[in-house]
């Protein structure tokens, strides 16, 4: 019985975290198709024909910080909450 509980702990842990990682990858792929590539700045390092100045490694990894900052002001002000519908 002890071994059953130990096995359960490992299966649950790896399963839940692994499953979550998988859903993130799938969601990421689905959403990536809907958003134009120029708005996905982390793609800079993967595409060949990219401007040199977008290849700032640290910001590119999370998406461009500056860009987000600018668009955030606009989107937070103008966005009545079309978000709520698809978010929930």
């Amino acid at each position: 019985m002890t071994n059953f509980y130990i096995a359960a702990a490992w299966v649950i842990t790896l399963g839940v975290v692994g499953g979550y990682a998988l859903t993130l990858v799938i969601r990421g792929r689905r959403l990536s198709r809907l958003v134009p590539a120029e708005r996905r700045r982390w793609m800079a390092d993967a595409s060949r024909d990219v401007d040199a100045d977008t290849a700032d490694a640290t910001t590119a990894d999370f998406g461009s910080v500056d860009n987000i900052g600018q668009s955030a002001t606009r989107s937070h002000a103008a966005h009545g909450g079309a978000g709520g519908a698809s978010h929930v």
């Binding site: 002000a77 103008a78 966005h79 009545g80 909450g81 709520g84």
Partner: peptide, 20 residues
């Protein structure tokens, strides 16, 4: 009345069901 209507220049909220 939508609080956001000013920033978009015209009223979007009353008729569109998608707007919250």
């Amino acid at each position: 009345e939508s609080a956001d209507s000013a920033s978009t220049g015209f009223d979007v909220s009353p008729k569109a069901p998608r707007e919250m």
